[in-house]
Amino acid sequence: MDDRRDPRPTEAQVNEDGVDLTLIRWSLSLSPLERLRVLEGHMEFAAKVQQARRDAAR
């Protein structure tokens, strides 16, 4: 197996509800700690956006 090849573009893999299954599979590949670190990153990003909007409104 040549692992130097670029990954091929693939069709979107969604279920009947439109849920992105590749995102779920990626999340399941992480450890619980890694999942929480990703979530913390989302929270931090959202807090920064909210702060930026508050600053811009002043």
Binding site: L23, I24, W26, L36, M43
Partner: peptide, 14 residues
């Protein structure tokens, strides 16, 4: 939501 994330669901919460 945090329980969902621990279970592997790609969702977010605050």
């Amino acid at each position: 939501g945090v329980a969902a994330v621990i279970n592997g669901a790609p969702v977010t919460t605050f």
